[in-house]
Amino acid sequence: MEALYIFMLAAFTGYEVIARVPVILHTPLMSGSNFVHGVVLVGAMVVLGHADPEDPLQLAIGFIAVVLGAANAAGGYVVTERMLAMFTKKN
């Protein structure tokens, strides 16, 4: 039940944050939100951390999860940073 409240409040927050965005920032913002869900890395680390060290299948799935999560976070950051860097150059 508690989680339901978190879901609802988070959904409103997400909506509010984006509601008044100039078009020029749509792409960087999409990229930025792509980076934020890279926090899935944390979840991947936790499941790999609790996987049975004797079970190669579990380790393999967990390993893939962490590689993918890390790529989402790192790639998302670099790409967003590069886009936004252009917007501050001349101000």
Binding site: A10, A11, H26, N34, H37, V39, V40, G43, V46
Partner: peptide, 28 residues
Amino acid sequence: AVGFEGYVLGIPALIIAGIVVGAAGTLL
């Protein structure tokens, strides 16, 4: 998806980040 798995793992940071992005992404 990240938000849902965050719930399964009991990590609020994942729930919040995931659902915020889910809502923002839908609007975008």
